[in-house]
Nucleic acid binder design. Structure first.
Lengths: 131, 131, 131, 131
DNA sequence: GTGGTCTAGACCACC
DNA sequence: GTGGTCTAGACCACG
């Protein structure tokens, strides 16, 4: 079953964090059409969050055509989002993991790693690297 | 002179984005004690944002002991944040850049790359990878 | 319910007066963890002050780890500040009250009393009286 | 020679702190008509403050009729402010000193003492104690 | 209804 | 000119 996580220090609204995690899972191939999301109540209980907040996230996703709620059955993935091809995913994820290990071996903590990653990505986007 | 950037789609409050960029610059060694940040009015004009929003960010940083505001003179870096050692920075940043190029050559767009990075980092943190 | 007071002639910014009153109430034992502060809107209405000014004060307190804001619920005391032991408080407060009565009986007005108190305290601090 | 002190953490504007100290010294009998205040330059140098700030304070005092600037000679006290009668002053100051010593012996630090004093004075003013 | 963010614009303190 | 405070009022996230 898909599990959500929250980072209360990020400043990102709770409902947006949920939305982003589903989108991310779709992109990465971890969720696929037909999969069932945990119920609003389950998520609310697990994250200690108001059910309305979860409802809002699910409604956002439904609005974007990514999920469909079926009364009495739950919420299901019914859309997709140009997922990363599994072979690329495997390869890139593996090499990124290696890079991460290197960073940790160099003594970097989570905050430093986050700063480095953000700096490099921002950087390369700034110079039109997305081309 | 230090320059800020905004991502309006991220959902992160403007002032927090500014705060994080300064912290990141400190971690990465791009800002150091004694450096002067752009004035409140300059930032507000450059980002087309209300001066109060910038004031809030600078105040947060001052609260954290990272900068000091001097009326009539500007806002200066006066604290530090366990910066990444430059050699590690150079090496890791270079290899991450290479990885990024590989991801782009595999046809991934910015959103897919973001999802992949987030997935890998979250993952490895979840399993106590920080050890 | 905790009540705030303002002294517009003091020259101390409104929001700082609020902050100091909460800190003082903590030191004196009048507020304790779990207590709820009046809502931003209540304070703003009672003091005829802009809500943002109150928000600023509460935010400062939160930053200092003394209170925690819970959206939809209010702002609660969640920290403490080395309170004065109640017995000492009772004894010292009582004798200071007596002193105050003496000063007033001698014909001193509020400004004179303030000057005297400030002079004596400053004085004794200057000579390292805190020892 | 009269000496000024600054408390940068109080939030009270610098120039107001200077004004208040002169008023206090007049009330307490520490300054009397004919006394000469330190020059603007001396104060500015001693407090590491911009001379304009001192000028503003002196102008405020002149405006209030308490001092007079004489070109080339300095600034002199030329007004008064219902001073505390010296006998009362001596007696009250002495007993307050005793109280202070008691508070410190009870282990209270400066912040706690300040809170206690403020609480007691506020309190008694609130109930019309100034009568 | 709670607190949080942002805008617009005035005024003050300090250099 | 700098940063700091305050007001007025809109909109959002959360319960």
């Amino acid at each position: 079953m898909f599990a959500f996580r929250l980072d209360s220090r990020s400043g990102v609204p709770t409902y947006l964090q949920l939305v982003k995690q589903v989108r991310r899972a779709l992109l990465v191939g971890y969720l696929r059409p037909g999969d069932r999301l945990p119920t609003v109540r389950e998520v609310a209980a697990a994250l200690v969050v108001n059910p309305n907040t979860v409802v809002k996230a699910y409604r956002d996703l439904e609005h974007a055509g990514l999920v469909t709620a079926r009364a009495g059955q739950g919420t299901f993935i019914t859309g997709t989002l140009k997922p990363i091809p599994p072979p690329s995913y495997t390869r890139l994820s593996r090499s990124l993991h290696t890079w991460l290990r290197g960073a940790r071996n160099a003594g970097l903590d989570a905050e430093q790693i986050g700063a480095l990653v953000a700096a490099v990505i921002d950087d390369s986007e700034a110079e039109g690297g997305a081309a």
